[in-house]
């Protein structure tokens, strides 16, 4: 099993920290005084997306994490699993359960180009595209011409998610949504 010593730490290195696969975001060697040296590092956990700050004694090692990331297209869900296909060369298919898909399921529309993270060959995270164009399926009737009052109302999207939208939006409108914040960006002209 490959492992990395703190003096090999650098951004982008994928390691196992406390049992979870993480990527190193930054690492700094610190040795104040005349004592033990430490490496202070920031890790992003692939599963939760959370950033962990940890200090390790200099010379400690972490096991390498077998992590691969690549792009996939979303196909469909059968309610239990979400199915994806690797485009072009392989057309290999992957299924991910609800736990793995997480909040991404709110933003999955057919053919959406997502990023899948595999750990030891198993999918552990799905990252939807930053922006999607999606249809409104349920909202109160739009207030015609009200494009300036700044008010908002809930709207249910075809993906199942409910977001806040301006008052002039109607059922059937196509919206551009930022999946990272879950916010309405604008009406799509497509």
């Amino acid at each position: 099993m490959t492992s990395y010593s703190t003096n090999e730490f650098k951004p982008g290195l994928k390691v196992l920290l406390e049992g979870s696969p993480c990527v190193i975001l930054e690492a700094e060697f610190v040795k104040p005084g005349k004592g033990q040296a430490f490496t202070r590092a920031k890790f992003r956990n692939f599963i939760t997306g959370r950033v962990w700050e940890r200090t390790l004694r200099s010379g400690e090692t972490l096991e390498a994490a077998d992590i691969i990331e690549f792009e996939v297209d979303y196909l469909y869900t059968d309610g239990y699993e979400w199915h994806f296909m690797r485009p072009e060369d392989t057309f290999e298919q992957f299924a991910a359960n609800e736990e793995v898909v997480g909040d991404a399921k709110n933003w999955l529309i057919e053919q959406a180009r997502c990023t899948v993270t595999l750990w030891n060959g198993q999918p552990i995270a799905i990252l939807p595209p930053n922006f999607i164009t999606v249809e409104v399926v349920d909202t109160d009737p739009g207030l015609k011409g009200d494009t300036v009052s700044g008010g908002s109302k809930p709207a249910k999207l075809a993906t199942g998610a409910t977001i806040r939208v301006p008052l002039f939006i109607n059922n059937g409108d196509l919206l551009k949504v930022d999946t990272r914040t879950g916010e309405y960006v604008g009406r799509s002209k497509d």
Binding site: V30, Q36, R57
Partner: peptide, 13 residues
């Protein structure tokens, strides 16, 4: 003996 080193390294950051 490493505890003081650790606290010192944190405090000075």
């Amino acid at each position: 003996h490493e505890v003081n080193d650790f606290l010192y390294s944190q405090a000075t950051q």
